[in-house]
Design a protein around this nucleic acid. Structure first.
Length: 573
RNA sequence: UGGGGGAUCGUCUAAUGGUAGGACAACGGACUCUGACUCCGUUUAUCUAGGUUCGAAUCCUAGUCCCCCAGCCA
């Protein structure tokens, strides 16, 4: 990867300080820990870039770990999609792990907590636990089961594991402080009974650990040094540290014995949790629930709809992975809640594509232009550079003939002020082909324009001395007789308002959907475009960046998606 | 009226007691066989009020506003 040097941020600074202090012997180990319960989106990409980027900068390792402690929500489909998306973004994990790989270790740790009098089996129902938890301003009450002996707790917990009790009948809880101002410390649940088939462990387990318990232990046994997560976990940090303090896995090799047997053992660490702000974008939604709803209610064409902020979506839209990485680098990493303008992302996309995308010509809204002083049989090819600045991208030949397609809005019978294109009796340059003058307008019966008839100034042909003559505008074209028909999908923002989550106007996010976010047109392409490989990016000159659709494009049925328009300083359009 | 965080151009971010800088956006202009790219220029910010200091975005005091937390979700 050729991304610029990593910019500074407070997490990087913490790592720099840790290394200077000799913490973890200077080692840096991070992890990206998604729950496989949905598709990855641009928000996840921030975390991916951060975790993998930091590991790379400090010659450390970054693992991909599926945080799969809740079999009710997790599926193999998501596991596969996540792996594919991380790779697409340009990163390779050190170890691929699942929290469920550590279930035996987690169980051993729980027995240790019980023996140490730090955890107890509670028979309260979920409702009763809620009722005794207290409120934000009032302390909770101790569970009546809090005083059970270690022996009784151990017996009950083993029977929980054995499947003797029904879902919800009992839980294992940490014994901390029901009066804590931090609600996470009020005897939180560590294990619950869930008799479900798990995507990775099948039916081996009847009990499953909770996030707060599993995550810190997983980090520690995996040897993670810096555990990065988002802001809402800030007040979980005391609990994260509490579990690690009680367990001290670094000095209790017996706890990770199951990993050794499974060939997964490394050197445990004492990880540090650091929280950063999520990255939000305007004109979109990023919550898993809402993305799920867009898909299930058929408001979009699936998880990989090019309008979706999912990585599968932006990939299909044609956003290069390097642009996504550059975007998050521009956005920075802080603890401030923020909403980044979509234009910043588009800026990154244009920057990458301007440098790399070959140029082509395509007409999306065709108007026939006939060159009357060219023979009907005229048939030649003109050489075009594929890129205005990068000769390494080579050139191609484009057929040119008497009848062309031009863009309907490149001709105006009554031109608005500042119009630089073709007008009656006016001149315009056909890209690389010479200057034409409009002599005549041919109309349909209803008065609409059927075609414009022009003469080509032969002294201005490409390669001729007169080719340097100045005219106000240059327009693109394709030869009507050679053009390839294509389906072109024009995408725009999915929502009409910057903050679709804002319901203060009484409308839900679904009511802010942009009805015009997808337009499909039949376009004419220069012939070389039929040979584009799926997912290749091109610039349709003067129109924007487009990508050959990952799934639907073929030589026989070309399909292109508009990734982003070109910047356009001609306001009157 | 509990606990935990955060406030810098329109947006995102930098400045670690010493010139408030950058990116995106916007607006001018130059260039141009893409109204693109590139280049030049312009506009716009330290939440408020006090205090410490030669000097404060940064330190202190008091406020204000915003976000998160009461799952057997993560």
């Amino acid at each position: 990867m050729t991304d610029a040097a990593a910019p500074n941020n407070f997490i990087r600074q913490i790592i720099l300080n840790d290394r200077a202090a000799g913490k973890n012997d200077g080692r840096v180990a991070t992890r990206f820990p998604p729950e496989p319960n949905g598709y990855l989106h641009l928000g996840h990409a921030k975390s991916i870039c951060l975790n993998f980027g930091l590991a790379r900068e400090f010659a450390g390792n970054c693992d991909l770990r599926f945080d799969d402690t809740n079999p009710a929500k997790e599926e193999q489909e998501y596991v596969d999609a996540i792996k594919s998306d991380v790779n697409w973004l340009g990163f390779e994990w050190n170890n691929l792990r699942h929290t469920s790989d550590y279930f035996e270790v987690l169980y051993l740790c729980a027995e240790k907590l019980i023996r140490d009098g730090k955890a107890f089996v509670c028979d309260l129902s979920a409702d009763e636990v809620r009722a005794t938890r207290g409120t934000l301003t009032e302390p909770g009450q101790n569970s009546p089961y809090r005083g059970r002996s270690a022996e009784e707790n151990l017996d009950l917990f083993r029977r929980m594991r054995a499947g003797e009790f029904d879902d919800g009948a009992r839980t294992l809880r940490a014994k901390i402080d029901m009066a804590s101002g931090n609600i996470n410390m009020r005897d939180p649940t560590i294990y619950r009974i869930r008799k479900l088939t798990h995507q990775n462990t099948g039916d081996a387990w009847k009990i499953y650990p909770m996030y707060d318990y599993a995550h810190c232990v997983s980090d520690a046994v995996e040897g993670i040094t810096h555990s990065l997560c988002t802001l809402e976990f800030e007040d979980h940090r005391p609990l994260y540290d509490w579990f690690l303090d009680q367990l001290d896995v670094e000095n209790h090799a017996e706890l990770i014995e199951p990993m050794r047997r499974a060939g997964l053992a490394g050197t445990p660490s004492r990880p540090q949790q650091i929280e950063f702000a999520r990255g939000n974008l305007d004109y979109t939604v990023m919550s898993k629930r809402k993305l799920m709803a867009l898909v299930s209610e058929n408001l979009v064409d699936g998880w990989d709809d090019p309008r979706m902020p999912t990585l599968a979506g932006v990939r299909r839209r044609g956003f290069p992975p390097a642009a996504v990485r550059a975007f998050w680098e521009r956005a920075g990493v802080t603890k401030q809640n923020s909403v980044i303008e979509f234009s910043v992302l588009e800026g990154s996309v244009r920057e990458v594509l301007d440098a790399s995308a070959p140029r082509r010509m395509a007409v999306l809204d065709p108007l026939k232009l006939v060159i009357t002083n060219l023979d009907a049989a005229h048939d030649e090819t003109i050489e075009f550079a594929n890129h205005p600045k990068n000769a390494e991208l080579g050139s191609r030949r484009v057929p040119f003939s008497r009848e062309l397609w031009i863009e309907r809005d490149d001709f105006a019978e009554v031109p608005p002020k500042g119009f630089h294109r073709l007008v009656p009796n006016g001149e315009v340059r056909l890209r690389n082909a010479g200057i034409v003058r409009c002599e005549e307008i041919v109309r349909n019966d209803d008065g609409s324009i059927a075609e414009v008839r022009c003469t080509l100034d032969p002294t201005t042909r490409h390669g001729m001395p007169g080719a340097d003559r100045k005219v106000k505008g240059t327009i693109h074209w394709v030869s009507a007789g050679h053009a390839v028909a294509a389906e072109v999908r024009l995408y725009d923002r999915l929502f009409t308002v910057a903050d679709p989550d804002d319901t203060s106007d009484g409308k839900t996010y679904a009511e802010h959907l942009n009805a015009d976010s997808k337009r499909v047109v039949r376009a004419w392409l220069e012939p070389s475009l039929a040979d584009a490989t799926p997912e290749s990016n091109v610039q349709f000159e003067r129109l924007g960046y487009f990508v050959a659709d990952r799934y639907d494009h073929s030589r026989a049925t070309p399909v292109f998606n508009r990734t982003v328009t070109l910047r356009d300083s001609y306001a009157v359009r």
